[in-house]
Design a protein around this nucleic acid. Structure first.
Lengths: 350, 350
DNA sequence: CTTGTCAGGGTAACCGGTGTCATGAATTCG
DNA sequence: CGAATTCATGACACCGGTTACCCTGACAAG
């Protein structure tokens, strides 16, 4: 009784008023907390009138259920985890922003977990991260997303997951595909239109699915117009600027030199341009260069880099929507596909 | 009873064995759950023998207390929030990695919140983020960290916070200072040693504390050797590559031209080098250029950029340690200070 | 021999929600 | 028209921890 009175002067009071609980809502709307819970969880078994009354009280006190308490009862938190082992900071941040986009206005929170696949405790760390926090679900991004041990772990511990990868590696509900192959094809078409015949490819880390897809798309695109990617024009890089330089140095020694280079990411493409410049070759006059990713560096190079734009943020949004079950996936599918962005680093052969 | 027997064949069983709770630990070690709780929370009132016994059981079952339940009881989660509105992805990721470094092995999780200070709902969004998740504490990074409305909000809602900023803006316990001023001074000394007298400065966004500090340090360093930063050699940029270009174009029109430019970040420094190159000026021969930040771009420019290295990851580690109360702050303070990294974009005047 | 103090530990209520089941009223059906 | 459903709601235990408080025994002081 005393408590009830004390609570009577509710909500609006002090600056740090204790936040209202489901009990406050129940009392003020004259129902049991269970019924309030039903409203929160959109149960159909609440009379319209009752629901409205409760909703009014909820709105007035701007009540929000405590995710911790809810999580405890549900035995599952309202947190989704972003798992990455990607050294491209821009990719990570864009992905994060996309996830946050989709989670805005929901009760979900975004927890991050950076990992290192080479670490011996990698899988245990990941397991700990998920189990300890009782994650609602996780988003796996390349290249962890390509690791089958990780997928197996998710299944083992029964964790909902979405893998963002260049190509399907799992059942559809677990995949967000980025279709990197299409980007490779577009690059091939683009270079072919400019009349290039001796085209080269600088790959990313071996065993990296995305790089592989970009190459396959490139080869397919070339084949479609009767061209071929010669093995000697293929160099194995490591996604870094430096590896781009090294690959370019090797390529530029060949006779005849390739007239165009497609690098599996912007970073290496920048390295290629760098090496070309050191060798006295200007892009696009002496060598056309195309990258993949369309990160900031692409626009800061001189000439600006022709590259494949990847809609990372949109992909992130999609991934989060999939996890939290928002059926918003109906958006223009085009927006999720890689698209060629033609700038000045590529041009007619000559 | 039945339950007890069923639970008897514990832990090691099925792949997805239900994770052990404090009750399991209590039963198996023959004490009450309260005593287990005491061990978990390092209460002194537990006999050494009892403690060891309990710890053994905990280890055997690899029990970890559920952060949700703990958080519920504590009325505070075990999550710390990273609040940022910084467009430099690398900064954000490095900061994140530093925070995660400090949180590794603890029960804490890292929740991210990207925000936009220009949004009308900015403060409400932030408040919602913190209150809804009952955050343990937040790390504010530039430039949100400089916003006094935000600090006031933290105080109002009683949220523990740490502000990462170039200079002290608050009580010491809330500040992690990056001492950008020292970086500016080092740049001044460096350029003075090379004999530069007509030095220019490209600032970041007006009202940005960090940019201001970098400039003040620069001016102080110049003054120390009898030099001066002339107002006409100061240009107001916006931290972007493009603004760096524009500022450089204005600076290069002046007669006499400055012989060195210090830009408040690497991005603008890259813009300056870009503009110089377009104007037919080579660095460092015709113009020395120095940046601030030491992000990837610094090493990818040609010539590579002389810049001030900022130990963002270490700063992040520090911030998280401060929040979660790890007294590990005793590390070499040097490691947290900005240091000049001399590369090829700066050289003797001539 | 009391009384007081303190280490060491247990009990019960509680944090803020959820599940399960019971209940009464209204509706449908044979 | 009585029985069987269906609907709308409440009572109560429970999720996995914590706090507040009480109890016990040992040992020192009075």
């Amino acid at each position: 009784m005393a408590k009830q009175v004390a609570r009577g002067r509710d909500g609006q009071g002090a600056g740090t008023s204790p936040r209202p609980t489901i009990n406050d809502i129940a009392r003020l709307s004259g129902v049991s907390k269970k019924t309030v819970s039903r409203v929160i969880n959109a149960s159909p078994y609440v009379q319209n009138e009752t629901r409205k009354r409760i909703e009014a009280v909820i709105a007035e006190l701007s009540y929000a259920p405590d995710p911790q308490a809810r999580g405890l009862a549900f035995r599952r938190s309202f947190l989704i985890g972003l798992v990455y082992d990607n050294s491209n900071a821009q990719y990570v941040v864009n992905m994060q922003l996309g996830l946050l986009d989709a989670m805005a206005g929901t009760d979900f929170g975004l927890l991050v977990h950076a990992c290192d696949r080479a670490s011996p405790s990698f899988l245990e760390d990941l397991r700990g991260f998920i189990k300890k926090q009782r994650l609602f679900g996780v988003v796996l991004t390349p290249s962890v997303s390509e690791d089958e041990r990780v997928a197996a772990l998710m299944v083992e511990i029964g964790c909902t997951y979405v893998r963002v990868a260049s190509v399907s590696l799992d059942e559809p509900q677990h995949m967000i595909e980025t279709h990197d192959r299409l980007g490779g094809e577009a690059v091939a078409r683009h270079l072919a239109e400019f009349g290039h015949q001796r085209v080269a490819f600088v790959s990313g880390l071996p065993g990296c699915r995305a790089s592989h897809e970009r190459r396959e798309g490139f080869e397919a695109g070339l084949a479609a117009v009767g061209l071929e990617l010669e093995p000697r024009y293929c160099q194995e890089g490591a996604y870094t600027f430096e590896s781009g330089i090294e690959c370019a140095e090797r390529l530029l020694k060949l006779k005849p030199r390739p007239t165009a280079v497609f690098a599996a990411n912007d970073e290496m493409a920048a390295g290629v341009m760098h090496a070309a410049r050191l060798a006295g070759l200007g892009a696009p006059k002496d060598l056309s260069v195309v990258g993949f990713g369309d990160f900031e560096i692409a626009r800061r190079l001189l000439p600006r880099l022709t590259t494949v734009h990847t809609p990372t943020r949109a992909i992130g949004r999609l991934a989060a929507e999939r996890l939290i079950g928002v059926a918003d996936e109906g958006r223009e599918p085009k927006d999720r596909l890689p698209t060629l962005v033609v700038r000045e680093s590529s041009g007619p052969v000559g």
